[in-house]
Design a protein around this nucleic acid. Structure first.
Length: 275
DNA sequence: CCCTGCCTGCTG
DNA sequence: CAGCAGGCAGGG
């Protein structure tokens, strides 16, 4: 489900709630959610550890423990992380429960069960989760027009497909790739090697701009977040093309088109985004 | 480059 | 019932 802006929203809600809390033990209702190490070691290793902070890298969330160990998770399509009171009604697909010392629970639910957890000890390098293969964060100094052009300027792949490649740039998914390309006036099917320098510059500016705009729009209180079970990201009214196929373009009025690129449904404006 | 699998649930 | 869903890995 979530892309960078949603994962960041979750981090911002949960970090203050979790900081300084200890995890007394873990209930793993489905052990296949735990990718590394085996579920038993995972639960044993985390038991009685205290949470120091929460971090995000691309669409990955990290729960940093005071010991220096790290819990990593990826929500994939339908994963949800929620801090609840002990007796709060449980979501149907709740797979992992972190029991906290203050009697609250950190629950991971995931309808489609694509989400995954990893645990990395402080002296261990993470070769498991895939974080090491990620490209830069869109807000990094190293991310700019030259970077994009150097990485993608010779590729024949569709630009939309390139933006979804997490090893190029971390955090963009199907919604925001469409929104970014719309704002940049770049047709999603354009081969990357057909983009002009000006377009790389436009993209380099719009990518962080668009993502931070949606992070701001997502801002939510912990109370609202709990009430909406972590599902309401509040930014959908601001999406200009995603989910609006067949409707008029908010800029030029032409009918928005839908096509499939790299197996992902893509919406664009044939007027604003010339092929 | 394309395709499949991984899962459940919702929509038409 | 088919088709689709905000992700990703693995295979040909």
């Amino acid at each position: 489900m979530p892309e960078l802006p949603e994962v960041e929203t979750i981090r911002r809600v949960l970090e203050p709630q979790l900081k300084g809390r200890a995890i007394s033990h873990i209930t793993a209702n489905r052990t296949d959610i735990i990718a590394y190490p085996a579920a038993e070691q995972f639960c044993e290793a985390i038991k009685n550890q205290t949470i120091a902070a929460m971090d995000r890298r691309g669409k990955f969330l990290m729960i940093l423990l005071e010991s220096g160990d790290t819990i990593i998770l990826h929500l994939r399509m339908t994963g949800c992380l929620l801090l609840t009171p002990q007796d709060y009604p449980q979501e149907k697909h709740t797979h992992i429960i972190f029991h906290l010392s203050d009697e609250n629970q950190l629950r991971f639910s995931d309808t489609r069960r694509f989400g995954r957890f990893w645990f990395i000890k402080n002296d261990q390098s993470d070769t498991y989760s895939g974080i090491s293969k990620l490209g830069p964060e869109p807000f990094d100094k190293s991310f700019n027009a030259e970077y994009l052009e150097r990485k993608l300027g010779k590729r024949r792949r569709a630009i939309k497909d390139c933006l979804l490649d997490q090893s190029i740039l971390a955090g963009i998914g199907n919604i925001y790739s469409d929104e970014i390309l719309f704002q940049a006036n770049v047709h999603p099917s354009r081969p990357a090697n057909s983009l002009k320098q000006q377009e790389w510059e436009r993209l380099a500016e719009i990518i962080p701009g668009c993502l931070s705009f949606f992070i701001e729009k997502n801002a939510i209180t912990p109370e609202e977040y709990l009430k909406t079970k972590g599902q309401d990201y509040r930014n959908t009214p601001f999406l200009q093309v995603y989910g609006h196929s067949g409707e008029p373009c908010p800029v030029c009025g032409q009918t928005l088109c839908r096509t499939v690129i790299g197996g992902r449904s893509s919406v664009y404006c044939p007027g604003c985004q010339r092929d």
